[in-house]
């Protein structure tokens, strides 16, 4: 066996069958179909491509998808931190139930979430009617999109921060307290820096999920052109019009953004792991 070859020699059986099958399956189900997006775009003309992805409706959707996702992820960072803190540090009745519920937005099918949120925030909905009194409309507005994206991004930050918070060495806080630090100073200068990488990772994951989200959003958004259309929706409408090239063009933009985010998240996690090991 070559010293610097592909695989280190091992006496365990079954490498080539399992590796080969995995690569084959991965290629057939994921890689080849995904490549269709890139190849299809390559066949279309650059002008057409550019026209599609820079048309006003599409650009408006970028702003909405991007902006609402960013805002929703930011909100989730703040409240997600609070929820994680409360779950790890405090005791209260029903805590285990609450902990389990944090995963609900992840487990609930998106269409169900979509119609449930819509029904809550329309003018006759349980929440909507109170907001209507104050003149705030959520359903069928951009605010609605924002609300839906907060819903689905919720678990990412909480689950990112929880394990890190659980692992914080109590002795560090004790040391700070013994040196005279107030709770706030201890938190902001001792504990928070430890949580920062996890918060960042959680933010990135919530953001990435929100960008591509479809089912939870299209019911509450109302899908009004130039106002409340999210980018994934535009792909669907192009497809329904048999404009494969247009749909693919927009999809390519989304894919590039998603992959960039995926890369960023992996880098973040890799870096935080190294930071943790060095500590």
């Amino acid at each position: 066996m070559a010293k610097h070859g592909f695989k280190r020699a091992s006496i365990l059986p079954g490498f080539w069958p399992t590796f080969g099958y995995s690569v084959l399956y991965l290629s057939l189900i994921v890689l080849v179909p995904l490549s269709a997006v890139f190849l299809k775009t390559a066949t279309a003309s650059w002008a057409h491509f550019w026209r599609t992805i820079s048309s006003p409706g599409v650009v408006a959707s970028y702003k909405l998808s991007f902006g609402a996702s960013l805002a929703a992820a930011a909100v989730n960072v703040v409240f997600g931190l609070v929820v994680a803190w409360v779950l790890v540090r405090y005791r209260f009745p029903g805590k285990r139930l609450v902990d389990a519920l944090v995963d609900l937005p992840f487990a609930l099918p998106t269409a169900v979430a979509g119609i449930a949120l819509t029904s809550l925030y329309t003018e006759h909905g349980w929440i909507g009617r109170w907001l209507a009194v104050v003149g705030i409309r959520v359903a069928f507005t951009r605010l609605g999109v924002f609300v839906a994206l907060v819903f689905i991004g919720l678990p990412f930050v909480v689950r990112s921060v929880q394990p890190v918070l659980e692992d914080v060495d109590p002795q560090m806080e004790e040391a700070a307290a013994s040196l005279g630090a107030s709770r706030w100073v201890t938190f902001s200068r001792v504990v928070f820096p430890l949580l920062r990488p996890a918060l960042l990772t959680g933010f990135a994951m919530a953001f990435a999920r929100a960008l591509g989200e479809y089912g939870s959003v299209i019911f509450i958004s109302g899908n009004m052109p130039m106002r409340t259309e999210i980018t994934p929706l535009l792909i669907v409408t192009r497809l329904e019009q048999y404009d494969y090239a247009g749909a693919t063009a927009i999809a390519l933009v989304m894919l590039v953004a998603s992959f960039a985010l995926l890369l960023g998240i992996n880098l973040l996690q890799w870096r935080s792991r190294r930071y943790a090991e060095a500590a």
């Binding site: 994921v30 995904l34 997006v37 989200e213 479809y214 994934p232 669907v236 497809l239 894919l255």
Partner: peptide, 16 residues
């Protein structure tokens, strides 16, 4: 990868 891809695109690729 499939986690990073929007569900709509997941459908699109098979249509393509």
């Amino acid at each position: 990868l499939p986690f990073a891809v929007s569900p709509v695109i997941a459908g699109l690729i098979y249509v393509l």
